[in-house]
Design a protein around this nucleic acid. Structure first.
Lengths: 105, 105
DNA sequence: TGAACTAGTTTATGCCATAAACCTGTTTGC
DNA sequence: GCAAACAGGTTTATGGCATAAACTAGTTCA
């Protein structure tokens, strides 16, 4: 069996960000800077319930800000990454890239 | 809110491989080609139960081969990636890299 | 011969992603 | 002006899965 030492030291990866649903939402937000519920709904293809739960969790984790208001008499909820969110995403990208780099090809 | 069209088309990512525990094991296997239970136990730091469950699932999914034998009167279970496993890992790397590339920086 | 160890597997628990049901208000049809 | 449909979410319920704990089978040591 392989001798110790040739084993790559695998980086730690943030499991909360690693969750695909959340990761997608964060990537969307990182690109557009600010997005509302309906926009994320369309772009992600998630159900409204799932989207609501995930955004709430992201907010509780301090990764996104939530801004609720009314536009044309209708509720509008807008989301934006916080600084902590941006920084967490950067760290995730670094660690995940390192993990993928351990793969051949 | 953002206009449609600036939205990145996010790639599909294989959720089975995306699971961190399995991904780590597959990365380890991809590097050393062949490894036994005890080796993976040490390198991964997982519990024996968790390791057993994950390797069984990977085998059921056709991603790894399991080879059981006895060495010095003790059971030895060796694992190796199948061709399908290698190919799935390549595809995962491609899609995940694309997703990470959508992130700024 | 029995206590401790090795190499696993099986069972049980708890979290979490998802979908379904629900809620509050607004617009539209009649 | 009132019921039905719609918009924008939130809350609940459930199923799957990662993990740890308990168990099994066999071996070595004392």
């Amino acid at each position: 069996m392989p001798s110790p030492g040739q084993a790559p030291a695998l980086p730690d990866v943030d499991a909360f960000l690693h969750e695909l649903a959340r990761l997608r939402l964060l990537v969307l937000l990182s690109v557009v800077k600010r997005a509302d519920f309906v926009y994320l709904l369309r772009q992600s293809g998630f159900s409204r319930g799932n989207l609501s739960v995930q955004m709430t969790k992201l907010a509780e984790a301090g990764l996104v800000d939530i801004d609720k208001s009314f536009v044309d008499n209708r509720p509008r909820t807008a989301y934006a990454l916080t600084k902590a969110g941006r920084s967490a995403l950067r760290a995730y990208k670094v660690s995940m890239t390192a993990l993928l780099d351990a793969l051949p090809d």
